[in-house]
């Protein structure tokens, strides 16, 4: 379980996270929604130690991670958490197979045969087993995201974070990605945290939904009941009724 308590982060005196409280329960799919610039990406990067919060607490499986050194994060936290970045963030000097293999080579010290087996298995899970030797620049946006997911699951993480996994994709591809997220959560039991603006996708994929507004979680609910909520900010946002000035 991941617990976030009263997390604060400012950039140039502008508070992006302003006391975030959140719990990610084992095995669940939690989606965080909210308008652009409310600190959703900052929140998941803070959990992973990619951004250092100003104050507050983040517990991963009962272990406080705020204030950990980079080496401690590497040893104790990042081996259990993977992230799929918004644009995939594939390493473009390597082909797809090498992208998936890198962490297995450097951190897991697996031999080439074992690595190859995991690469093929991970690509098969995302339905792209034939692109092992293709370079990222030759991939479409949807394929890039699926390769990023294959790379993320190759290290067998306990937690998997997705930063806007369907942004920039057409509805068909968005469905493919959403179904994949659901499938991986069910098959591999990966606890999943998603940041998304795709309300339909959030409803389909998530167990719970949390809304981040002005640096705080203002509402959390069961995804199946998200259209019956009484919280005005949440309601207005998911129905697209927020005024432009509020953006």
């Amino acid at each position: 379980m991941i617990k976030v308590r009263d997390l604060h982060k400012s950039f140039n005196n502008h508070a992006v996270l302003n006391g975030v409280n959140l719990e990610l329960l084992d095995g669940e799919v939690l989606s965080i929604i909210g308008k652009s610039g409310t600190g959703k990406s900052v929140l998941i990067k803070s959990i992973l130690g990619l951004i250092e919060p100003d104050s507050g607490s983040v517990e991963v499986d009962g272990m406080e991670v705020v204030g950990m050194s980079e080496d401690q994060f590497n040893a104790k936290v990042r081996n259990n958490i993977s992230i799929v970045f918004q644009e995939g963030a594939l390493w473009d000097s390597m082909n797809v197979g090498e992208n998936i293999e890198l962490a297995l080579q450097i951190k897991k010290h697996l031999d080439p045969e074992e690595r190859e087996e995991i690469v093929i298995d991970s690509l098969r899970k995302v339905g792209l087993e034939n692109i092992r030797y293709v370079y990222p620049e030759e991939l479409s946006g949807g394929m890039m995201k699926r390769v990023a997911i294959a790379r993320a699951i190759a290290t067998r993480p306990k937690y998997l974070f997705y930063d806007e996994p369907t942004t920039g994709l057409d509805p068909v591809l968005s469905n493919v990605i959403n179904n994949l997220i659901k499938k991986l959560n069910a098959e591999l039991g990966i606890t999943t945290l998603i940041i998304s603006h795709d309300i339909k996708g959030v409803e389909t994929v998530s167990d719970r939904v949390a809304m981040l507004y002005e640096g705080k979680v203002v509402h959390t609910c069961n995804a199946k009941e998200m259209w019956q909520q009484e919280n005005k900010i949440f309601n207005d946002f998911i129905r697209g009724r927020m005024g432009i000035n509020e953006y």
Partner: peptide
């Protein structure tokens, strides 16, 4: 140019997220 591009496209963050030290790599 390569490292700068990797930084702005989150590829450096991706390395760190896999517990790979960017300076080491």
């Amino acid at each position: 140019a390569e490292i700068g591009t990797m930084k702005v496209t989150e590829q450096i963050d991706a390395l760190r997220s896999f517990a790979i030290d960017p300076i080491e790599y």
